[in-house]
């Protein structure tokens, strides 16, 4: 995945958070019902939609249902897309809503729709814990061949609070910068940095449990506990 990000001292142009003219044209054609354009949009974003749905639902089959539901919603309402954000962000918001609807159907009395309470609790408990200087043991890339490892990682992602997961997804999958995420999520950039930081902290711990870690740096910094 190529990442080309600019340092924060360079003013972020709003255009960076929007689609290219070619993508806008593709969206326009898809909105007019052109199947080729719809298929191109589907292929570009179906993976992120699947991962978003799986993160919320924790169930692979349900996540596939949400992928279908999401894209049917997308193509029904593409003519209302105003181009104020990237179409990918817009699609992921639809995926998130479709996942929540699915969750509500499945567990009507349990689901917490906004996740805000959990996020506030998470941030309150975070207390500036430093990152662990731990490297995953073995060969994690090879371990990814194993289904149970991948399920464990998917669970780790699902364990994040909705806010942390959303910021993680926008950064890692949509390639948005901190400033762009801030604009899309309508929260300060500092908050975005903090959420992304804590999302990584938690993932680091979760992956440490999955793969095991080498913690050569532990003796240099007190208070860092690896699991």
């Amino acid at each position: 995945m190529n990442r080309s990000r600019q340092p924060t001292s360079i003013p972020k142009d709003d255009e960076r958070a929007r689609d290219s003219p070619e993508e806008i044209d593709e969206v326009r054609r898809a909105a007019c019902g052109e199947l080729d354009a719809q298929n191109a949009i589907y292929r570009r974003y179906n993976g992120n939609v699947l991962a978003t749905a799986r993160g919320i639902l924790r169930d692979r089959d349900d996540a596939f249902d949400v992928v279908q539901e999401t894209f049917v919603r997308v193509f029904r309402s593409l003519h209302t897309f105003k181009g104020e954000s990237k179409v990918g962000s817009w699609i992921l918001r639809i995926a998130k809503n479709a996942s929540i609807d699915q969750l509500r159907r499945r567990r009507p009395n349990v689901v917490r729709l906004d996740g805000s309470v959990g996020a506030e609790r998470d941030l309150a408990n975070a207390s500036y814990e430093p990152l662990a200087p731990t490297i995953l043991r073995g060969n994690p890339m090879k371990e990814l061949e194993r289904r149970e490892i991948r399920d464990a990682i998917a669970d780790a992602l699902a364990d994040l609070s909705p806010e942390h997961r959303e910021v993680w997804c926008m950064y890692e999958w949509e390639n948005l910068s901190y400033a762009e995420i801030s604009r899309v999520a309508k929260v300060p950039k500092g908050t975005i940095m903090s959420r992304l930081f804590h999302a990584r902290q938690k993932l680091q711990k979760s992956l440490g449990r999955v793969f095991g870690t080498t913690a050569d740096g532990d003796e240099h910094e007190e208070g860092v506990k690896t699991t």
């Binding site: 993976g47 699947l50 990814l144 990682i153 890692e172 999958w173």
Partner: peptide, 10 residues
């Protein structure tokens, strides 16, 4: 690792 996981899942 997370990106590789996403790619593998896809």
């Amino acid at each position: 690792v997370m990106r590789a996981h996403q790619q593998r899942e896809l």
